[in-house]
Write a protein that binds this DNA or RNA. Structure first.
Lengths: 196, 196, 196, 196
DNA sequence: AATGAATGAGTGTTCATTCAT
DNA sequence: TATGAATGAACACTCATTCAT
């Protein structure tokens, strides 16, 4: 059973996610988030110590959802290729909807020297490694089943995330609309294929 | 011949680049830039309308340098693979030095909805396309010479830029040196290779 | 018989006294007092209209205790000198324990122009006069019994309170530890003594 | 020659003194001080790090003026009694004008546990001791000249400062003019007198 | 052209107070 | 009676921008 408190907390995180994603940390005001959530500014501080903690919580939640999804798909009975396609499709769509690659692949900020980022960095790093591990596991299974050639699975996993990012940006940058994410994914899978 | 004005302008841009790269747009204060440049805050406004324009100028300059380098390498007589490796090496090193992937590959910000980004976006988009065109040209040459299989060169070019980005982040994310940029790049090139 | 209501009220006042004394009016939060009392913030408002009224009540109670004590000692059968010594000892100890000269002699705040102080001022004034009257009575008795020379008893009473204050502060300000309150009191009593 | 900067700084301190004295630290807003000084809020921060530093500066300045005055009077050729009377008269008048005993004798706050007071405390303590030393010196001279009996001069000095305070409060507490500052002071001096 | 003191709009955060339960 | 979540007014402080010199 969900208490009201948890509900409000989640509501704030969800609204904050959308705004942080669109505006970034600094342009986002606490007032914006409160208004979007339909609560008073002060109320937000009952749930989060300060703006930075909220940001960290949003990232943590966002990663959690992502990692849960990875686990879920990993357990399904499909070829590794299909699993990776499914995940990529889902995530690219999510990013398109949010209009932001946001945290999940926003490793940019990792180098910002501000206080906030110093707090976010270890969390992101830890979670990112978790993600990479799960993806690497899927890739290992694919190697075992001869779907892929023998490659270092962690390297391939990182490259996979990179490919998803490209799949998102292709919508904004490359003009011809006929290009779609499948073309980019094909590029990735080709790199993994066994040479005939 | 370079006037003093041009000299000051360039000096500001160079100092601003370093600070913007490290701190990001919002954390960077006009005072920081002025101090780093060794001029007064007010002076900065003689050269740039406002902080946002300075940011735009910094990006433009940064892209210009990048595009010039691309043109230069493109003209050299090497295999396309070697050209792309050379560029990737150079850029990853630059990013490591700046401790930031900064603009060049910071397509993230492209979706930020703030005023500044609205000004930056078309410029970045335009320049990014210019970059992609040159890289696509190199890839096309590779396809012609049977180095690469037949793929959409613009898509591959975007994927190439993302891969460079990943090659940079590997240093921060996966601390164990078992994964390095070359492994990531190799995976990318493999995706382009013809199947035997 | 004491109702539960009265009990809670008194408990709040006692806790508030300690906190107000240590932190002052503004640094003390209603939440602090509620927590120290072991009640909810809202409950406090069932007993006191607002923070200022609580403050006023605390002062009133504090004065009441002081005045009751004065009456009590006044009735005892001792020389006036002994009565005054007894009172001074008791009060200096209390202040040292509270680590604050607090209200009793904190006429400072009397000049603060804030709303709260406007409410507190007449109460403090009234009660202070009551105190001074009782002390003056003790002094008058001393004069009658030739313990003291003829002086205006109200003036002497005020000076007596002043002396107690000095007795407290001497602990914090004058470095040599060998000085104690008795030395200060001696200074006071000497002023009252008849010249031989 | 006084620079403009020094002038503004002093102006801020003077205005702040009046407001802090009347309202206390917490009720005083930075906006109030800025407005009274005739400058913008931001300008104030060019001269003082924050509200607390301004407060500290105000206290320091206030003590400086007081200590300078003590030194000045101490050097004059009068009896010690006359010196102490002169100082008391001057200070009580100043306090009446400021409508606040403010810092000089506001030893109350010395026990407040807030951050600000933690910064102020050592400064006040140090300056207070300086004051007490000068007054003690005057008292010692009085003892040497047989004006006063043998008493611990530092204790007497502290008591003297408290008496001045009382001399000020008499105006607020006992409205009927039957008690005035001179009566209180006389009582103090009597305590110092040698018994015939 | 260059300065840097002055500005004031904008923001994060606190906390006394209320009110539905 | 008691609660404590919710409120929002109030305030300290920052910083891009201006302008008199």
């Amino acid at each position: 059973m969900r208490t009201k408190e948890q509900h409000t907390r989640e509501k704030i995180i969800n609204c904050a996610l959308r705004i942080f994603a669109k505006e970034g940390f600094f342009k986002t005001t606490v007032a914006d988030i409160a208004q979007a959530t339909g609560i008073a500014k002060g109320t937000l501080y009952l749930y989060f110590k300060d703006k930075a903690s909220l940001y960290v919580s949003v990232i943590e939640e966002h990663f959690k959802v992502g990692i849960d999804y990875l686990h879920e798909v990993e357990k399904e009975s499909m070829t590794s290729t299909k699993k990776l396609k499914k995940i990529a499709d889902e995530w690219i769509d999510t990013m398109i909807q949010l209009k932001s690659s946001f945290f999940m692949f926003s490793m940019e900020n990792i180098n910002l020297s501000s206080k906030i980022m110093k707090a976010v960095k270890p969390i992101m790093n830890f979670r990112l490694k978790e993600m990479i591990d799960i993806i690497a596991k899927i890739i290992e299974q694919g190697i075992a089943k001869k779907e892929f050639r023998k490659i270092e699975p962690h390297v391939a996993a990182l490259h996979y995330l990179n490919t998803i990012r490209t799949g998102f940006f292709v919508n904004f940058i490359v003009p011809k609309k006929q290009i779609d994410k499948n073309e980019i994914l094909e590029l990735f899978f080709n790199g993994l294929k066994r040479r005939r």
